[in-house]
């Protein structure tokens, strides 16, 4: 939908502008990805496993 409203060449029409946007966009995503690329602490997986084991089968599950 967004793409329809915008000529495909717009972002790259000005190379300097595109370069600046690439750099800033990259940095905003790196703030975020610095976290997503960390190792997930063991607590998360342990808690999820415990929750899975503790749950009874779902009442609405037709195969249960």
């Amino acid at each position: 939908m967004m793409a329809d409203r915008k000529p495909t060449g717009k972002v790259s029409a000005d190379p300097d502008r595109k370069r600046r946007g690439d750099r800033l966009g990259e940095q905003l995503r790196r703030l975020y990805d610095d976290v997503t690329q960390e190792d997930v602490p063991d607590d998360f997986l342990r808690l999820l496993e415990e929750a899975d084991r503790a749950d009874p089968p779902r009442a609405s599950d037709p195969d249960a």
Partner: peptide, 26 residues
């Protein structure tokens, strides 16, 4: 930050990032 090392004007740069966000979203 952005204005110090590459001569980037932050207001332009943020216009750009939203173009890019649109591009990603599309």
């Amino acid at each position: 930050g952005f204005s110090s090392d590459h001569g980037i004007r932050a207001d332009q740069a943020f216009d750009d990032i939203m173009d890019q966000a649109d591009h990603i979203a599309s």
